[in-house]
Design a protein around this nucleic acid. Sequence first.
DNA 1: AAGCTTGTCAGGCATATGCCTGACAAGAGT
DNA 2: ACTCTTGTCAGGCATATGCCTGACAAGCTT
Lengths: 238, 238
Amino acid sequence: MSRSAKAPRPQRPAKSARTTRAANGRRIRLLLVDDHPVVREGLRSCLAAHANLHVVGEAASGEEAVVKATRLKPDLVLMDINLPGINGLEATRQLRQLMPAVKVLVLTVQGGREYVSQVARHGAQGYMLKDASPDELARAIVAVHHGQAVFSHQLSEVLALPDSTQLLTPREREVLTRIAQGERGKDIARCFGVSPSTIKTLRERLMRKLGRHSIAALTKYALEQGLIAPPAARSRSV
Amino acid sequence: MSRSAKAPRPQRPAKSARTTRAANGRRIRLLLVDDHPVVREGLRSCLAAHANLHVVGEAASGEEAVVKATRLKPDLVLMDINLPGINGLEATRQLRQLMPAVKVLVLTVQGGREYVSQVARHGAQGYMLKDASPDELARAIVAVHHGQAVFSHQLSEVLALPDSTQLLTPREREVLTRIAQGERGKDIARCFGVSPSTIKTLRERLMRKLGRHSIAALTKYALEQGLIAPPAARSRSV
DNA sequence: AAGCTTGTCAGGCATATGCCTGACAAGAGT
DNA sequence: ACTCTTGTCAGGCATATGCCTGACAAGCTT
């Protein structure tokens, strides 16, 4: 904790203002995407200490992110995942399709293994967790802007793990999401137009592969890995 | 904006500095509790615009929150719920027990109905969602400091709903959390030292009361309502 | 005192799970 | 050609769920 406590607020010395100065001298134009004003403000404030980082806009939803990105043409978008409307991954996909030059650094609290590969699959160049320090974040932005792929060091352990869901076939993933959403075997079978036995077998394969041996456990796994949307008990969705 | 930065950066005009100036002239001493540096910085920055709000410290965990609160004796603690170690609710409970004079305003992304009553039960005076605007937040802080109970207006719809979990007895809640964590009836029974039949009956009562008729559905409900920690796929817990 | 809820327990019954054993065809990789 | 994985399907079997019917004691409300 860099902040001393009772002191007359130490006015953080912005120590890294120099350290991250852009090599080429050009400022990196940033678009902040997060639905929480406080977080946007925090990012703004954290990044303000870095002379080469320039926040050119903010967006509070996926749709707004895409619109603003096309208008403002930032170099890089800092993208949250949990957004009202289309989520950050989908927004990333759309954005990257429309403007391949714009890089996307995903910044979220979700740390599941599956999220990592999902993030990459959707075209983002980086994936930081929100418990990264401001300096880490700034370094990540610069690195991504320079073409590196950057992942939060907190994710390294997760990345070191075998990607369990990579091991799943599309069919298995589909079945898993259905199971995790509370559908029962028979309904899934009917919905897929296959025999209940098939779903049964697939479920058992899933359990063997993932080492989760109950529906509740599979549900929790799917949630952890971001295979299904976390139950959004937000007011807007109630 | 407290942090200077060399950039010309629009240095947001702190328009509401006057509007929330304390009536009594005394500044409200605040302790910020959140495990994300960026969020803490955002709060700092948002609140810096208000002359009567004074951030005296920060904490990144529940334990740290309790320690710092006893040391710094803030007027009010801004408390996140999802924290490493003991969560914000437990921290609130401990803190309120140790220092009843310190008010707690919970500030989180969790908007479930059950969370609202849980927050109140743990001794907090207010509950704001993180999508509140900085001004709302500042007003809430002042209001709570003046003895009001404050809840995010985004929560009003949620509050208008009947509190389904209020309808649950402590025992039922306990069983529900166990179920949602993937324990099966028999194990719960053994753990509680009662007959499996009892758990069976309780589970059925739960299903009737909540209108969820499978374990997966109960799990999702518990997640939504914040009865169990959202599956923390964070690196630290992997 | 009568009624209510809670927590405890039990039985039955249809269905679903979890775990095992198979099987077969299509496709990919070697 | 051979192996491997995938997706499909089936049977059996022990256990768990989901849904119903009870029951009884303790406590609280009225």
